[in-house]
């Protein structure tokens, strides 16, 4: 996908509404073969989460132990850096998930 700074700027306007929310893991996977932007980060975990107060969203899961990474476990959304910087040198931040402890 294109990593245009304008696209990142547009996305961050809605990302802030998704921070600090609790939800439940509906499904998860660990990615071993990734697109170039994420290649240096493999393996990384992506979860599909049902937020307590709205719909389903995706995000990477960080700072967890394996017992936390299961269907049905609770997580909380936080702000973290997203992948490597692209050709435009824009440092992108995005919504990720940590276990709710």
């Amino acid at each position: 996908m294109s990593h245009s700074p304008v696209k990142i700027w547009r996305k961050q306007k809605t990302d802030r509404d998704l921070l600090g929310k609790n939800g439940t893991i509906i499904s998860w996977t660990e990615i071993n073969v990734a697109p170039p932007q994420y290649s240096s980060k493999t393996p990384y975990t992506v979860v599909l989460v049902k937020l307590d107060d709205s719909s389903n969203i995706y995000g990477q899961m960080v700072d967890f132990e394996k017992k936390d990474r299961e269907i049905g476990k609770k997580v909380r959304s936080i702000l973290r850096r997203n992948g490597d910087v692209g050709p435009e040198d824009v440092l992108e931040y995005t919504v990720k998930f940590v276990p709710l402890s």
């Binding site: 996977t29 990734a34 697109p35 170039p36 990384y44 995706y58 997203n82």
Partner: peptide, 26 residues
């Protein structure tokens, strides 16, 4: 390369799926 074709095939996933590093196999 494998990484490039992974990115190319991921164009058949949604923007939100791509923007969290989710691939097509993912």
């Amino acid at each position: 390369t494998a990484s490039e074709i992974t990115e190319a095939l991921a164009t058949a996933a949604s923007h939100k799926e791509q923007s969290v590093g989710l691939t097509f196999p993912g």
